[in-house]
Structure formats: C-alpha cells, structure tokens
C-alpha cells in the first residue's frame, strides 16, 4: 500500500471538540505506550536486580524508595489502572454495548476519574497502612 496514494485520511485531533470519550481514547494509547516502554524497562530492572543478588536488589529498591522512584511508581500505577479501566471499556464496547451518547459519556467520565481515585487509595494504603517508604 503506497503512503502517497490519494486515499482520504480520517479527521484527526484538531477538528473535534474535546469530550470525555476523546480523553479516555487518547489516554488509553498514551498510557499503553508509557507502560510498554517505562513499565517494561522497570519490570526488567526489578527482575534482573532480583536475579543478580542482594546488592543489585537493594540498589533497585533504594531508587524506588527515593522520591523520584516514588513519583515514577505512582505514575505507573495510575497509567496501569487507567489503561486497565479504558481497556475494560473497550472490551464492553467490542460487544456492541454502550454506544448511546449519554451512556458513553457517563462511562467515559467514570473511566477517566476512577483510576485517579484508585491510585490515591492504593498508595494511601501502601504509605500509611503498610508503612512502606516511611
């Protein structure tokens, strides 16, 4: 397929008025790319550190306990929960359900807010109930 053929491109970001449906769609892609690259590399670092031995593992956890590591982990938690929530929305919509305007808008708002709440709740639990990073 030639890239230069005169097939029309579908209308892109610039012509749409922003709404919650558009937000969750673009968030799904951004969080997916971020989780793949940043989350993928972090997973590899964690497993390598564990396999390499105590010193490597302590070096890894030292970074994760540092405030930069904490911000990274909280960010990845949100990205994971956001991608999971919008992914579930996609699975539901794949069955043909939830395309009515009001229903779609409602669940788009839920899917963009709930991960923020869950991220806050999970990290409140880790920091204050479990007492990690204390």
């Amino acid at each position: 397929m030639k890239a230069s053929s005169a097939r029309p491109l579908s209308p892109h970001l610039s012509i749409w008025r922003w709404g919650p449906h558009m937000l969750v769609s673009i968030l799904h892609r951004i969080t997916g790319a971020g989780l793949s690259i940043v989350g993928g590399l972090l997973l590899l670092w964690w497993l390598w550190a564990l396999a390499d031995g105590r010193d490597s593992y302590d070096y890894f956890t030292g970074w994760m306990m540092h405030w930069t590591g904490l911000i990274l982990l909280v960010g990845l938690t949100w990205a994971f929960l956001q991608h999971l929530a919008s992914g579930l929305r996609h699975l539901v919509m794949d069955t043909g359900a939830g395309f009515e305007l009001k229903t779609n808008k409602f669940w788009s708002v839920v899917v963009s807010l709930l991960p923020l709440v869950l991220t806050g709740a999970l990290w409140a639990y880790i920091l204050f109930v479990r007492g990690y990073f204390a």
């Binding site: 997973l43 590899l44 497993l47 390598w48 564990l50 396999a51």
Partner: peptide
Amino acid sequence: LFVYAGGAFAMFCVLKV
C-alpha cells in the same frame, strides 16, 4: 527485537531466582 529479548531475559531472571 525489544519484546523477544526483553521477554527472554525476564524469564531467565525469574528462573534463576
């Protein structure tokens, strides 16, 4: 390349532990 190398390396680390 990234996913095959990364996946194999991650699996090796898990098995080692």
